[in-house]
Simulated assay, not measured.
Amino acid sequence: MSQTTIKTEWIDVTAEDGKTFKAYQALPPKGKGPGIVLIQEIFGVNAHIRGVAEQYAMDGYTVIAPDMFWREEAGVELGYDGDDWKEAVAHKNALDFPTAVSDLRAATKALRASPACDGPVASVGYCLGGVLSYLCGLDAGVDAAICYYAGGVTEHLGRADELKVPTQFHFGAEDDHIPLEHVEQTREAFTGRDDVEVHLYDNAEHGFNCWARASYNQHASALAHGHTLTFLASRTQ
């Protein structure tokens, strides 16, 4: 029976070490579509990230958003200020990136194996998730990587020549966490690559895509979402 709306649920994913963790799944109205592994900010798979998963599901994608902090504390869901901010930073600092990429590789494999996924699988990540999305392009077996305000990605640009999948970066010109110098370093690392895009949005701050934050910028968010969908449609066939 065909679906008339998206369907959401928490699913179990088996990690490479045999343990299991949760991921929020959003299925498109047709019940299946190309895959997106959606990677959270430092605030967990909170209401906003679940909303983004549902947004991409309405665009026709089968989306899973894995809980990236589960090894330390499962089900982290935080706001953006005060003690929540401090707790989010602590979780980020405690995250082991190689282990996180291993878990994302498991999530990618699980999504590919799902009957609800009938096309390529891309990673889309925000902030912390933006860096992890880039690493997914290197090590997790995705077909494309989308990276929003990926602070710290410059630490991994030494591996730029190893990146073999189409990749797109989104930065805000007024981001006080990511210097414009780092944006230019990212652009320069992929000079001559027509399958790598770097977009910079005027008047946009860190977190410009998050409608739950004071830094939300509707114009930049809409442009970036459009660029993302165009990139996914044209680069993942």
Rank of each mutant, 00 (worst) to 15 (best):
Thr5Glu: 14
Thr5Tyr: 02
Thr5Asp: 10
Glu9Ser: 11
Trp10Val: 09
Gln25Ser: 02
Ala26Asn: 07
Leu27His: 04
Val37His: 10
Leu38His: 00
Glu41Arg: 12
Gly44Leu: 00
Gly44Cys: 06
Ala47Ser: 15
Gly51Gln: 15
Gly60Lys: 11
Tyr61Lys: 02
Thr62Asp: 06
Thr62His: 03
Asp67Gly: 04
Phe69Val: 00
Phe69His: 13
Arg71Thr: 02
Glu72Ala: 14
Gly75Cys: 09
Glu77Gly: 02
Leu78Asn: 09
Tyr80Lys: 13
Tyr80Ile: 08
Gly82Glu: 05
His91Trp: 03
Ala94Gln: 14
Val101Asn: 04
Val101Pro: 05
Leu104Thr: 07
Ala106Ile: 05
Ala107Trp: 02
Ala107His: 06
Thr108Cys: 04
Lys109Ile: 03
Ala110His: 14
Leu111Lys: 03
Arg112Asn: 11
Ala113Cys: 02
Cys117Met: 04
Cys117Phe: 11
Ala122Glu: 06
Ala122Gln: 00
Val124Asp: 05
Cys127Ser: 13
Leu128Pro: 02
Leu128Lys: 10
Gly130Ala: 09
Val131Trp: 09
Leu132Cys: 03
Ser133Ile: 05
Asp139Cys: 02
Ala140Cys: 03
Ala140Ile: 00
Gly141His: 01
Val142Tyr: 07
Ala144Ser: 14
Ala145Lys: 02
Cys147His: 02
Tyr148His: 08
Ala150His: 04
Gly152Phe: 00
Val153Asn: 03
Leu157Thr: 00
Leu157His: 04
Gly158His: 13
Gly158Asn: 12
Arg159Glu: 14
Leu163Arg: 11
Lys164Asn: 12
Thr167His: 08
Asp176Lys: 13
Glu181Gln: 12
Glu184Pro: 06
Gly192Phe: 11
Gly192Gln: 11
Asp194Tyr: 07
Asp194Val: 05
Asp195Thr: 10
Val196Phe: 04
Val196Lys: 02
Glu197Met: 11
Val198Ile: 12
Leu200Ile: 09
Asp202Gly: 09
Arg213Asn: 04
Tyr216Glu: 08
Asn217Thr: 02
Gln218Arg: 15
Ala220Phe: 05
Ala222Arg: 14
Ala222Trp: 11
Ala224Met: 04
Ala224Thr: 06
Thr230Pro: 00
Thr230Cys: 02
Ala233Lys: 15
Ser234Met: 10
Arg235Gly: 01
Gln237Cys: 08
